[in-house]
Design a protein around this nucleic acid. Structure first.
Lengths: 116, 116
DNA sequence: CAGACGTAGTACGACAGACGTGGTAAATGA
DNA sequence: TCATTTACCACGTCTGTCGTACTACGTCTG
């Protein structure tokens, strides 16, 4: 079963910010990193990714900067993103909210130990 | 912190179906039950609840029946809902999906043991 | 007995995140 | 040479959620 994206709705931002926590990155790389981390269990859609960038930059959670391919053979021009202080704070908040959500949902989920 | 509803987006149906698993119920009662189970941590909005009913009935996950206040002093007319077989199957699916989602999200959440 | 509050439900419209479709363009590999 | 990978973007649609507003009955309290 693939994860329907609506499940994660509202958490794509959190996922992207997590990737940016330790190093600046750009769309395509972030997308690959998410696939890598989840063993392809979650594949973010391109349009979702780029619209998240727009939204988060508008909200001040990330900043962008263009990187031209100075060295030859480094591919095309890229738009890098850097997480801001506000972004880090927002990430923290969303983590706490997630933990709360997990607790709440636990009341409504019957796990089937036989099936797992 | 209150749970922003968008977090749970797509899982309100699951939550409602859980309440209906063991007994038929109606809007107002289901709403109270959700609050009770979560210690008021999650309060479903009225409009969200009733639009979920419409959607789920359309999809065949629940069936409705009217109950008139036969005995005097039992309040107003109520619309009861009953979960269908398709609804039970859907609930099971969503549970499995939730477990998968939890696993995926775990990669992107840093828990702060100090703060908890 | 008036008004507040709890019970029970509905209509309508707006918003926002996710995503489908389709496109540009350069670099790489077979 | 031609497909594939890399890299990004515009536009429009869909859908779940929610704000606002409304109806209507019963009960409790001052």
């Amino acid at each position: 079963m693939a994860i329907s994206s609506d499940v994660i709705r509202g958490y794509n931002d959190t996922i992207i910010l997590y990737v940016l926590l330790n190093s600046d990155s750009y769309g395509y790389e972030i997308s690959k990193e998410i696939r890598r981390l989840t063993d392809d269990k979650y594949v973010i859609k391109e349009t979702t990714l780029y619209s998240a960038f727009t939204r988060m930059e508008r909200n001040g959670y990330i900043e962008s900067f263009e990187v031209e391919p100075e060295a030859e053979g480094t591919g095309k021009r890229r738009t890098y993103y850097r997480i801001t202080e506000a972004g880090r704070a927002y990430y923290q908040e969303k983590c706490e909210e997630w933990l709360l959500t997990k607790d709440v949902m636990a009341h409504f989920i019957l796990e089937d130990p036989v099936k797992r």
